[in-house]
Computed example of a mutant assay.
Amino acid sequence: MDVDAQEPPATKVDGPKTGASRKTRSPAGSMRLSEIAALAGVSEATVSRVLNRKYGVAQKTRDQVEAALREVGYERSVKGEIVLILTPSLKGIIFSEMADEIETRLSPHGLRAVVCPVFPGTIAEQDYVEMLIDKGIAAAIFLSSSNTLRNSDPVAHQLLESRGVPFLTINGSFAAVEAPAISTDDWQAAELSVAHLHELGHRRIGMMAGPTGNIPADRRVEGYLTSMDSRGLTDAEDLVVRVHYSIDGGRSAADELLNAGATAIIASSDDMALGAYRAIRRRGLDVPGDVSVIGYNDTYMLEFTDPPLTSVRQPIEAIAELCTRTLVTMVQDRPVRTEETLVEPELRVRRSTGPVRSS
Results as ranks from 00 to 15, higher is better:
355 P>I: 10
333 D>W: 02
231 R>Q: 13
182 I>P: 08
328 V>P: 07
280 I>A: 02
199 E>K: 12
145 S>P: 00
3 V>M: 15
15 G>E: 08
329 T>L: 03
72 V>D: 01
292 S>D: 06
246 S>D: 07
133 I>T: 07
302 L>Q: 10
61 T>E: 14
259 N>F: 00
326 T>L: 06
121 G>F: 03
358 S>L: 13
119 F>I: 03
77 S>Q: 14
284 G>L: 03
246 S>W: 01
107 S>E: 12
79 K>G: 13
89 S>C: 11
343 V>S: 12
228 M>H: 06
288 P>T: 05
92 G>I: 13
165 V>C: 04
293 V>A: 02
291 V>E: 05
317 E>A: 15
313 R>W: 02
3 V>L: 15
227 S>I: 08
109 H>E: 06
241 V>Q: 13
332 Q>P: 00
163 R>S: 06
251 R>P: 00
300 Y>Q: 12
181 A>M: 06
296 Y>N: 11
81 E>N: 13
332 Q>N: 14
165 V>R: 01
357 R>D: 12
192 L>H: 06
124 A>W: 02
338 T>N: 10
317 E>L: 07
315 P>F: 03
12 K>N: 11
194 V>F: 00
73 G>N: 14
82 I>Y: 11
222 E>S: 14
200 L>C: 01
341 T>W: 09
155 V>G: 00
207 M>V: 09
142 F>P: 00
335 P>E: 10
244 H>N: 13
295 G>I: 07
244 H>G: 09
90 L>V: 15
315 P>C: 07
227 S>W: 05
17 K>S: 13
304 F>D: 08
271 D>N: 10
154 P>R: 04
221 V>C: 03
276 A>D: 05
231 R>Y: 05
234 T>E: 11
49 R>F: 04
14 D>P: 03
300 Y>A: 14
16 P>I: 03
358 S>N: 14
164 G>K: 07
253 A>H: 05
208 M>Y: 01
204 R>V: 09
54 K>G: 06
323 C>W: 06
124 A>L: 08
19 G>K: 03
24 T>F: 00
207 M>G: 03
89 S>Y: 11
90 L>K: 09
204 R>L: 10
294 I>Q: 04
149 L>W: 01
316 I>M: 12
299 T>P: 00
257 L>H: 07
56 G>S: 15
212 T>R: 14
79 K>A: 15
94 I>E: 11
252 S>N: 11
350 R>P: 14
23 K>N: 09
38 A>L: 09
318 A>W: 00
188 Q>R: 13
76 R>S: 08
279 A>S: 14
272 M>N: 05
25 R>L: 08
216 P>T: 12
154 P>W: 02
329 T>V: 12
34 S>N: 12
288 P>H: 04
168 L>H: 04
267 A>L: 03
358 S>Q: 15
145 S>T: 01
212 T>G: 11
3 V>W: 09
328 V>W: 02
71 E>W: 03
15 G>M: 02
148 T>R: 06
20 A>D: 11
147 N>W: 00
330 M>Q: 13
268 S>L: 02
